[in-house]
Design a protein around this nucleic acid. Sequence first.
DNA 1: GTGCGATGTATCGGTCCGATACATCGCGGC
DNA 2: GCCGCGATGTATCGGACCGATACATCGCAC
Lengths: 212, 212
Amino acid sequence: MLEFAILGLLQESPMHGYELRKELTAKLGAIRAAISYGSLYPTLRRLQAAGWITEAAETSATAEEVPALTSRRGRVVYKITAEGKERFAQLIAQAGPETYDDTGFGVHFAFFARTDQATRLRILEGRRRKIEERREGLRDVLGRAAERLDAYTLELQRHGLDACEREVRWLEELIANERSGRAPTVPNIGTAGGRREDNSPPPPGETRNERP
Amino acid sequence: MLEFAILGLLQESPMHGYELRKELTAKLGAIRAAISYGSLYPTLRRLQAAGWITEAAETSATAEEVPALTSRRGRVVYKITAEGKERFAQLIAQAGPETYDDTGFGVHFAFFARTDQATRLRILEGRRRKIEERREGLRDVLGRAAERLDAYTLELQRHGLDACEREVRWLEELIANERSGRAPTVPNIGTAGGRREDNSPPPPGETRNERP
DNA sequence: GTGCGATGTATCGGTCCGATACATCGCGGC
DNA sequence: GCCGCGATGTATCGGACCGATACATCGCAC
């Protein structure tokens, strides 16, 4: 999951760890608290070892000048490689059942602007199915096993059931919207190179009404 | 978290692993998918090593009779010890900030019937505060950083914000309810012994309206 | 009599978290 | 002038939990 998110973010621009965490937190704030450095840095190393990202030494400018003097570690900026972009595309294409759990779905959804419409639809429907199953499970418990459980546990189930019903409706809307045209095709996957500045990804077309 | 849930469940009756997982899934179905055996069994071993649970060999009845013949592993039934009950009470009393994240809160809430009112209130308020912070964070992003994000990411944030607002309202209700008397005191914490059959924990008193 | 799904115990590799450590930079207060 | 302090920044370690996998038993339907 982290791997996917990092590759996705680095396609927008090169970043160092701290920055990456901030962006990740902003983008995924709705679904998870904050990425831990204890997973971020090891993952960065792993991605680098695999050749999907590379270090881009910060503002070299007389690089070898200051060798000693506490050696000055400085920030490490990472950028995605062509292989990394391929990997990201491949991770999108796979998008299997593990994509439908809470975190997995959220992260994939956050990068829908870089996902083709067919895959978007597949993920949305898979997620809906999963939530519907959870919903049925909760209904079963509330129906059949209600007398075995205490009032607090029941209240928790009710609240969960409510959230499920709500999410299913949300997904229905998104699916309908996705089906009815609008569906923009993905702009720049594969094919490395080219300066970025692509901060206007295709709008999915007024996905919802505005807040009052 | 798992430790807490296991100790809580085993206070209702002794169980073996498989059964434990089923009950856990039923009780926590609203907040998490299903406990993995890869965490359940190691945790059981850990709890046993700590002396909080013990093995209660299943239906001994001529125990040493059948030594060979594939040696018959059979089910391993665990029961909680007096120290285990103390440990559970201690875990409830601590109930710190880590209790306010999604999973932690859900698990604690599921055992509110075994939690004293003051602690219930503390947990509910801590959770509310946490969700309010998340809500503010999402509002910030939707307000200030909106143009930096694509339409899908924004939609995700909106959905998350919605869920936050909804949960805060839910918590408000629960807190109000908890404050306005009703609050049942916890029945059987500490003091080991005594047959069980306590399947009617104190009702928190019509916590919500019924479903139509 | 045989396959097959439910029951049941168990391990392994891997992901991620929370705590912790440590170093630098800019800025406001004394 | 300099001192603390919060933001920035990189990094590791132990532990919790998951997903896949393996394997054995039981009852029942075909």
